[in-house]
């Protein structure tokens, strides 16, 4: 049976330290001023009900991925577990996928001149049964990663305990990344 990977991002636990973003840069050698992953912060609400809101900007690994369906050369493809990867050999950098992605997850790596994005650290870590680097570095355990087919996994238990929000769910892309929304603090 294939894996049903899921990554959960707990907005209640995140402190916006950017450790995940830095670890991602180191792991994948992302060029300066380009990002596979950003955690954006914003102060929201009206005094005294103020709070920080956090937003994780990275590939959400759609099941019905717009980037895969628009790619003319199958350079963007899904593997057997449904993870979206980029075959750099056949990518002609037509940039259609960048414009098709509703999550703004893709960019052109200026060193290689091909399109790049978060791949859940598949080659270097997940395929070797390690956690993605952002998950393993997170100091507050705001990120959880695992297989939804394993019923004793942390992501399975958390998914069935908490109310999850899937980013831009109305587009019906069925992301593998879900958010645990902020419970207290501000009212946006």
């Amino acid at each position: 049976m294939g894996k049903a990977y899921r990554l959960l991002y707990d907005e209640n636990a995140c402190i916006g330290c950017q450790a995940c973003s830095v670890a991602c840069r180191v792991e994948h050698g992302v060029p300066e001023d380009f990002f596979r992953l950003q955690v954006r912060m914003e102060l929201k609400g009206v005094f005294p009900r103020l709070g920080m809101s956090y937003e994780r900007m990275a590939c959400v690994m759609c099941e019905d991925a717009p980037c895969v369906s628009v790619c003319p050369t199958f350079a963007s493809f899904q593997d057997k577990d449904g993870l979206v990867h980029i075959d750099e050999r056949v990518c002609i950098t037509c940039k259609y996928c960048i414009l098709a992605c509703p999550y703004h997850a893709r960019f052109i790596n200026p060193l290689k001149n091909v399109v790049e994005k978060c791949d859940f650290c598949y080659e270097s870590r997940v395929s070797k049964a390690l956690l993605p680097v952002c998950v393993s570095i997170c100091p507050t355990e705001a990120l959880m990663f695992g297989d939804m087919n394993e019923h004793d996994s942390l992501v399975y238990e958390t998914s069935h305990k908490e109310a999850l929000i899937f980013p831009k769910a109305h587009l019906k892309t069925k992301p593998k990344v879900a958010f645990l929304p902020k419970r207290k603090g501000m009212k946006s």
């Binding site: 628009v70 003319p72 050369t73 056949v90 002609i92 950098t93």
Partner: peptide, 25 residues
């Protein structure tokens, strides 16, 4: 306009019929 203009031949070899760009080719 392609980022790698010399690789454009991949457009002529691989066709993804769900992609409007491939249909356009």
């Amino acid at each position: 306009d392609l980022g790698r203009p010399l690789s454009f031949y991949w457009l002529l070899i691989r066709y993804n019929i769900t992609s409007v760009m491939s249909l356009g080719v």
